[in-house]
Each structure stands twice: as structure tokens, then as C-alpha cells.
Design a binder for these strands. Structure first.
Lengths: 132, 132, 132, 132
DNA sequence: GTGGTCTAGACCACC
DNA sequence: GTGGTCTAGACCACG
């Protein structure tokens, strides 16, 4: 594990052994922060270099994550001043809340399936979470 | 989604949009079935070809999953008669129950982290699962 | 016969008429190179594609050999930069020297048995090897 | 390992863990016995059933080995009396001695290559064989 | 450029 | 019928 608190509003937590590419983890964590409104339009993200140092990873990896989010219209870069959360999602046909709910349902569905595969019923799952 | 009931004891459920390779999903579902004791030593797995038809994927993909589990000593194959759960895991220093509990904790930890990233608290999570 | 000198440290020699699968020959030659310390932890193996060209075989065949060794923890791959000898064999209870000696005894035993079956005595064998 | 002395002249020694199919091991051992003249034309081989009991393997496996050698003209079966070494090898373009020498060279070449891969030089090999 | 995944299809070995 | 090996080729992910 590899944590880093950045400028503000977002803390990254990387799992280098899980097989999930690092740049995907970064993308997901930025998206989730937006969906849960910890990051709002206009907020500044940490610089690539600073974040690379904090997370002890290759700057290219962060550049790739930011780049993909920029292509999707989630981020905007302003040369000389940094990378920001966009004001608008041009193609958005769903509201942020809708997307968030969809993501939550996806995560929940995957999770329930995996725990069921591991032989747990709903009551056992509830009990585990209460003790978490 | 893509489900298939096989010979017995195990039903595969593939998620083709999640980015997780199909063969990894198969490996995980076999491992979890063993950990939850739905599959026991000596049990026969579905044949590669039958499963390929059921899941509508290429036989080589299943062969790759079975092959990795064979290298790891989880499965044994007898050409001409099929693929079986191995009798012994020679290097096992942990009981099946211990491994199962470790996996459950891993899945749970990942899940709680993701939902927290999506802005959910424990009570909201509990409520969602009750309604699941 | 089919020889290929790769990046360094290891030269592969395939016997396509022996019935032994090509990917198994590759695995054995990598293992033996490690046991005789011609390959050490951190050393880079030839790329899959370069070796495929050299050995005039399909890249998938080499990928299968590398893949098995990766599952066994002998190799590590870093997509984008190549395949390397792992630093540690976590479960190793035998030293490299012990394994090497065991392998030598196995090869020797098989060989003496086969030549005995072909009607040769120890002195004839010694004489043949001197002339080899 | 699994040894069995049959009617006469030939003792089979099977290696069930080596990956080499059992029927191939039987074929090889019969061929080598012929090449080294421990079995001569007209000699009777053990019956399939007796040998199956001795070696504790499936009779079909022995039938397959005998069958293949019969196709090649090495054996002849006389219903009711048994299986025998043929008098003639119809297609033989090489003498028995030539074949034997070729086989010896093959075995020797494979062996020297493997031990070289394991880091042994000729003198070490000679020394090991003297102590064998 | 690296390796990874998946498909399609041929041929072989074993029961 | 079973699984195993190998080829060929497409497309993706990563640096």
C-alpha cells in the first residue's frame, strides 16, 4: 500500500499488488471523489510531479490517468497553472447522482457475488460489516 | 452476464464488461467454490469443451484457467477422463477455513474502501445490503 | 535442431523431433540455467517476440513457457519492459545447489537406465563419453 | 517406480511421474531389449493380462504398446498362443546394430546437453558415472 | 516497443 | 470422447 495526501480534497491509496493497473486506480479514485462531491468543478488536482513523488510512481503513469480523464472531459489542463476538474461534462446524459448510483450498484453487485461465491449469506455479510 | 450450470457443484457467472480477464474470473470462481467447500477433492469439473459451449467462449480460455490451477496444484487432469480437484495442496500451511477467512477480509476491505470513496458511510452500506 | 543465442546468459537449443513439447524444453533450459547460476535474480530474459524469431516458433509458445514459470514464481514480468528472473523463491526449502544436485542425479539415473537397456555397461559408457 | 519381471528376458521398469506415457515406456524398453539382443526373434513376450497385473496398470495400455509394435512389424501375435518377436523387420533399411548405435547417440547427445545445461563439464560427468 | 488476452482452428495423445 | 500442443492473427494495456 502506498498512500499520499495531495493538495487537498483527495487522498490516493494505491494497491500495487492487486493486478489493477495503477493508472486505473488513480482514475477511479478521482471519479469517485467527484461522484461523492469531495472534488467539485474548478478544484485543482495535485501536479503530476508532486503526486509522482508522493506516490513513488512514474510520472508517466499519472500523466496517463490525467490524460484519459481529460479526453473524457472530466479534467481540464491549463498550461502553467495546473489540472482542474471541468465545469461541464459535454456528453453527459446522466446526472452525477445517477452515475454515482450506477457505480454503487456495480460495486455492490460484484461484492455480493464474490461473497456469495465464498459461501456467505446476507446475514453473515451484514454482521461482518457491522464489525468492520 | 453469462451464466452456466455445469456438471454439478459449480455455476460460472462471467462479467464480460468488468475488464477482469475471463480466465481470471473462472480461476477465482473455482477457488472460491473450493474454499466454501462446494467443490471437494476428487470432484470433476465440467469438461473444457462443454463449458466453452455453455459460456460461449473459446475452449482455450478455459484451458488457460484450468492450466494455471493445475500448475498451482489445485487441479489434476487425466487426459481422456477430465479435470478434477486435487486431493492435496502439498505446501498448504493454512487450513481452507483460514484461507477463506483471509479472502473474505480482502474482499470486504476492498469493498468498504470503494464504497467509502463513493461517499457512503457504514449505515448507508448496511441499508443497501438489506435491500439487495 | 534449432539454436538461438539470446540477449545474454542463455542459449536455447530445441529438439523438435524428440516428442518433448517445445515449451517444456524452454522451461527446462531456463530452470537449468538458473540452477547452474548462468541466470541470476534480476537478469532479463530475451523478449518473447525476439526469441520467437530466433527459434522460428510462434510467440505464444514462448509466452506459455514464460507464463508457467511466472505462475511458479521463477520469473516476473513487467509489461512494457520485459521478463526477469525473480528475486526470491518464497517457498524454497532447498538451496539452489541442493536442487541442482538432485536434478543431476535424476538425469544421470534416467540416462544410465536407458543405456543399460540398450545393452551398455559402465565401461562402455565411460568410453563413449570420453570420445564425445 | 514400478518394476516387474516377466516370463523371461525382459524386466519392465515404469516411471509413472515422469510425464512420459506408459505405453511409450513399454515400447522403448521392448525396442531396447531387442537392440541389445536380450530379446531375439521368436521370443515370447509376457501376456497382456499377466503384465498388467505385474505392473499394476490398465491392460489397454499394454495392448496399445504391443499393437503399435505389431503395426511396425516388430511383434507378431498368434491368437491363442501369445505375442512374439518377429523374425523379420520388413521395411528395415538399417541393421539392428545401426539402429542401436543411432539410439545410443541420441540418448548420449540428449544427456550431455542436459548435464551441460546444469553446468557440468565432461570430467565431472565422467567422475559422476564412475561413482554411479 | 513490451507482454496479455482471446479467438479460431489444426493436429496429436490418451482412454 | 477427453485434454495438450502449436500456429496465426487481432486487439488491448502499459511505459
Amino acid at each position: 500500500m502506498n498512500d499520499a495526501k495531495a493538495d487537498s480534497n483527495i487522498t490516493f491509496s494505491l494497491e500495487t499488488t492487486s493486478g489493477t493497473p495503477i493508472y486505473r486506480q488513480i482514475i477511479q479514485q478521482i471519479e469517485y471523489a467527484i461522484l461523492s462531491e469531495r472534488l467539485k468543478p474548478g478544484d485543482r488536482l495535485p501536479t503530476i510531479r508532486a503526486l509522482a513523488v508522493d506516490l513513488k510512481i512514474n510520472p508517466n503513469t499519472i500523466a496517463k490517468a490525467y490524460g484519459e480523464l481529460e479526453i473524457r472531459g472530466v479534467l481540464t489542463t491549463q498550461v502553467g497553472s495546473g489540472t482542474f476538474i471541468s465545469n461541464k461534462k459535454p456528453e453527459a446524459r446522466e446526472s452525477i447522482e445517477d452515475i454515482r448510483h450506477r457505480k454503487i450498484q456495480e460495486v455492490l453487485g460484484r461484492f455480493m457475488q464474490e461473497l456469495e461465491d465464498l459461501g456467505l449469506g446476507k446475514n453473515e455479510i451484514l454482521s461482518l460489516i457491522r464489525k468492520f
